[in-house]
Structure formats: C-alpha cells, structure tokens
Simulated scan of single mutants.
Amino acid sequence: MSLSPLPFKLIFVTGSMRSGTSLLHRLISTSPDAGERLAPARYIMDFIQLFHTYSNSESAFVSDYAKSNADFLAVTRQFVTDRLHDAWLHSGKPACLVLRTVEVAPTLPLVARLLPEAKFAVSVREPKDVIASILKVGEKQRKFWPRRETLASSKNLSRMCRTYNRAYLATVRTQRSDEALRKRIVFVRYEDAVADPAGALRDLWRRFDIAPGSTILTADSAKRTSIRQIMLHKYWRSYKTDLSEAPISAASIGSHKSALKASEIWAINWRCRILRRLFQYSGGGGSLEI
C-alpha cells in the first residue's frame, strides 16, 4: 500500500476517560508548533472503529465490497487523512496537529498501523481517582439525562475497572515487542503534569521533535464554537468540572478518598493492580518508564 505522507506532524492525546487528557492536550497546545485546539476527534475515531469491526469478526460483510484487506485499509486511511487535512486547515495549518480523543486508547495499536506517522501522548492517572471522577460525572448525567444509560451513570465499579484496563493494556502489551511503536508513545501521569508540567512534558517535546511550550495555563474559555457547543450541550456538559479550561490545580488528586468506600478502594486496587504497578501507583517511584 502506497502511503502519502501528511504535510504536518500528528499527535493524538488519549488515555482513559477522566484521566487528564484535556489537561495534557492544553499543555501540549502551548507549543508554538501546535495550532488552535479543536473539538475532540470522536468522528474520526468512529470511522476507524468501523474498520476495526469489519476487518475482524465481521469481515465477511466487506469481502464483496473491497478488493482485499489491504484495499480496505487504504480506503480507510484515505478517508481519515482527508479529515485530518481538513482539521489541520481549521487549526491554522500548524507544524503539528494535536488532537484529543479518549476513543483512540483501546485501539491505539490499530490507529498506529493505519497512521504510521502519528505519535501518541497517553495520559494516565490513579485509577481510583479516575473512577471517582466517572462516578461524579454519572451523578450529573442521571440528573441531566435520566433515561440515558452510560458507563458513568451505571454505578458498575467492575465495568469501570474493565474500561480503565482496556484503555491501556493493548498498548502496553503490544509495545513490549514492538520497538517502533514504543518510540511513538509517551506516557504522562496526571499527577506529574499537575505538580511539574514543564518537567512532565520534557521527554515529550524531545521525542516528538516539537518546540517546547510554556506549559503555563490560564483561565481559557473555549475559543472555538464547536467546543463551546459541546460544553453547553445537555449531555456533554456533564463532563465539565471546575477545572475545565481553568489554571492547573491539584484539587482533584486524591479525590477518591472522600468519594469511595474502603471496600470499593480495595476492589479497584485489585482489579487494576497490573496497571497500578506499571504506572507506579502501588509504591516505588522514579520516572514513568513502560
């Protein structure tokens, strides 16, 4: 398959929901190489998810409509790169297009195959704080949209832990045997980004070869109409917090202590034990190396 290179560098900011992807996206966007922040790239990921579905368990439905799996991959890439080019134009033709979407995380190896020029900034956070934040969102969603069943509104702790694990495990396992993929990924802990944003992103600037940003965030109301519409939407506004578009704050670190019962804390620690150890939330210290 012949691949036409993109005329810009490409970074996807991803990770589990409520893991700090918005904060990481804002920090990276302080680079002079980055353009204006755009709305999350869910639309692009929905299309990639179709490729994931129909190139695997439901491939028979595509066999009569594509010459081969390689042709199916090429068609998908062409559509995605066209949309990325449009996003690049909307972002002001920056040297580096930085897009945020948590939907990339569970299928990151597939996205990496589809877009070999893409780099990935992956936000990680203590799973107990992630789940405490999801539960808080769920409270809002049951109020704003009582008939809509979501992960957040379900109160299903086991399901939330599975979602957290699924966001990272495929990437962690794949990169262990794929050095090329490993070089395209930088993990950034939310806690490190809050405590020392310049230090937390130092490795990212170097490895992704983009100009370092100031990493100084001020109160920044969304500039784009699309982002404002999302933040005011009856459903999507449930994800907005006091820290959204606000200066950096450590207020949410350790939030699980007042939100979770002792039995729930134990259950999350157990179900997420592999990633808690890898992300250094179960003792140890030092820099995050996976």
Rank of each mutant, 00 (worst) to 15 (best):
M1Q: 09
L3A: 13
F8C: 02
I11K: 01
F12E: 00
S16E: 02
S19M: 00
T21G: 00
R26Y: 08
S29N: 14
T30C: 09
R37G: 11
A39R: 07
A41R: 03
R42V: 11
Y43I: 14
I44T: 02
Y54V: 01
A60K: 13
A60R: 14
F61G: 12
V62W: 10
A66R: 07
K67H: 12
Q78M: 14
F79N: 12
G92V: 00
P94C: 03
R100A: 10
P116W: 08
P116V: 13
E117H: 03
S123V: 00
V124I: 06
K128G: 10
I134W: 07
G138A: 06
Q141L: 13
R147P: 09
L151P: 03
S154G: 04
K155Y: 10
R162Y: 15
A167F: 01
Y168L: 05
Y168S: 06
D178H: 11
E179R: 12
A180T: 10
K183C: 06
V186T: 05
R189S: 04
E191L: 07
A193L: 03
R202W: 07
W205L: 00
D209A: 04
A211E: 10
I216F: 09
I216L: 12
L217R: 10
D220W: 14
S221Y: 15
A222V: 03
R224G: 14
M231E: 10
K234P: 09
D242S: 05
S244G: 04
E245H: 04
I248F: 07
A250P: 01
H256V: 15
L260A: 04
E264Q: 04
W266V: 09
R271M: 12
C272A: 05
R277K: 13
S282C: 09
G283S: 04
S287H: 08
S287A: 10
I290C: 15
